[in-house]
């Protein structure tokens, strides 16, 4: 088991996962999301191949109303 921090919450995973697999069950269209791992943006093209490892801090963000 590995543990990653996903949007501030600890999440246990069986094994390292690609970002695409990690986000598979998210309802929002993937185009609406951006992903950062350990404070670095992971470009969308790399989501299928970029693996999330033990201890990674993952942020998944979208756009909301703002001024």
């Amino acid at each position: 088991m590995i543990t990653v921090t996903l949007n501030g919450n600890p999440v246990e995973l069986e094994q390292p996962l690609s970002i695409r697999d990690l986000l598979e069950s998210v309802q929002v269209p993937p185009d609406y999301l951006a992903v950062e791992i350990n404070a670095e943006v992971v470009p969308r093209a790399e989501h299928p191949t970029h693996l999330v490892h033990d201890g990674d801090v993952v942020e998944v963000v979208t756009l909301v109303g703002g001024g």
């Binding site: 996903l6 942020e59 998944v60 979208t62």
Partner: peptide, 9 residues
């Protein structure tokens, strides 16, 4: 627009 965490799952 603003950038915020997605309410995952």
């Amino acid at each position: 627009v603003a950038v915020r965490r997605e309410r995952l799952y």
